[in-house]
Amino acid sequence: MLFGFVLLFGYAFVVWLVFFKFKWMKFNIAWGVVSVSVGLHLLLIFLLGLRYVAPYATEARLIQHTIQLVPRLPEPTLVTAVLVEANTPVRKGQPLFQFDRRPYQYKVNQLEASLAKARQDVLVMKNDIQINAEKVVKLRSELKYAEYQQKLSAKLAKQGAGPEEDAQKWSAQAAAYAAGVKEAQAEEERARLRYASEVDGVNTTVAAVQAELDQARYYLDNTLMVAPEDGYIINLQVRPGMVAGEVRFGAIASFICDADRYLLANFFQENLKYVKPGQLVEAALDLYPGQIFPGRVEAIWQGSGAGQMLPSGTLPNFSYVPTEVPQGQFAVAIRLDGEDQARFPIGTQGRATIYTNPDSGFVVLRRIGIRAYSWFNWLYPFSG
């Protein structure tokens, strides 16, 4: 910057010597236009220096993460209590809203009873295996007896010592016992399969009921909505008696997180040529007239929606953009210094400047400019 001042004052001194001191040339309108034009071009040195050494953002806003509070319930549920106040800090895990527990408690009770029954049924299936095994043994014994009687009756009937009907009766009885043995064996196998049906060592029926019970307990736990992080709620409209749940679309409140808030400033793309993370930043926030807040560059968002094309069957149509329309900008995330970040609420706006070379003389000019803006906020807007 010193070179620029020397060049500018040197040029002014030469003009003074030529036209006014020694009057080597007559100063007229033409020479006046030329002299002023050359002087204005020399001023471009300061413009270029400020743009690249101390880029300036006229639009900067405080950004905070927000969490949309959506009831995690499977059906519309009555809000029975609001346990938080608007604009009041809350800690992570602190209760916010209480929903009607009764329908979810009833479901848990029902499934707990079903789980107890399913576990009892497993013991019954184990006994069914033993019962069907004993039934097979009994029917096999009766089959052997019927086969013996059939052979004996057939022998007596052949010798004329007994009726043929007895042989036929015992033959039919043996066939019935044989069918009974097969049926009992099938029932035993079915009972064994039902008893042996397991997932990770747990009977499948018991596992299915346990899964339903776990889900019911999950919904019961979610009848109490708690704070996901440290933060607060603005514009609290939830009241006891309202119904929230699956039928309502969207959240019932927005939770503003305290952690990881940052200042997002927009810069012209070419001004970011020498900007890097970690560089010194000064911000003037409209909320605090006359104050300057230091910070550091955290990240440069090298991209914008202007370069995004969504999948479509329509070919891109590029149109002429007038030169007076502002060019695209990139955003820079800035982390402001200070432990008390609560001073910077969400949406706070202002301006910011980045010092790519803090030792440059151009920084002095930018420091004056941003402080002038901050002090001017005492007067503007003129609201009376």
Rank of each mutant, 00 (worst) to 15 (best):
P294N: 08
I63H: 04
I334R: 03
L17A: 13
V238K: 10
D359A: 01
L285W: 13
P322V: 12
Y274Q: 11
D166R: 05
P55L: 08
W170C: 07
V181H: 03
G290H: 00
G290Y: 00
T66I: 09
Y56D: 09
A176W: 01
A116F: 01
K151D: 05
G347A: 11
F267I: 06
T223P: 06
Q279Y: 01
E59F: 04
K158N: 13
R261Y: 03
T356Q: 05
V136H: 04
V79R: 04
V124E: 10
F97M: 10
V364W: 13
P311Y: 05
E198H: 06
E189C: 00
L365Y: 07
V325R: 07
I233V: 01
Y148L: 13
A331P: 02
T77V: 13
L152K: 08
A178I: 01
E246M: 13
A186D: 04
E164R: 08
E246F: 14
A208T: 10
A299N: 08
E183A: 14
V122T: 13
L2E: 15
L224D: 02
M1R: 02
T223W: 03
F267G: 07
K92H: 02
Q215W: 00
W24L: 09
M225E: 07
N28I: 10
I67G: 00
E183H: 13
L193G: 05
N127K: 10
E298I: 15
L143P: 04
Q215D: 03
Y274L: 14
V84C: 06
Y355G: 09
E85V: 15
Y320V: 15
Q327G: 14
K144T: 15
G303I: 07
A244N: 07
V202Y: 04
P289E: 09
N222H: 09
I252R: 04
V136D: 09
A227W: 03
Q110C: 01
D100T: 11
V226S: 02
V206M: 12
D214F: 01
A57E: 05
A86C: 08
V84S: 09
G39S: 14
V137H: 06
V136I: 13
E187N: 15
A306S: 14
A265N: 07
C257S: 00
D128E: 13
L17Q: 11
E189R: 09
S254M: 03
R61I: 12
R261P: 02
R248N: 14
Q210E: 14
Y262T: 11
V209G: 05
A265R: 09
V364T: 11
Q291E: 15
D337S: 04
G369L: 11
V38Y: 03
G305V: 03
D100H: 12
F249Q: 14
Y219R: 06
D128C: 00
S383E: 11
S383L: 08
F46I: 11
D359E: 10
L44I: 12
Q215F: 05
V321E: 10
S141W: 03
E298Q: 15
E270H: 13
V90L: 06
I370G: 00
L7C: 10
G231V: 02
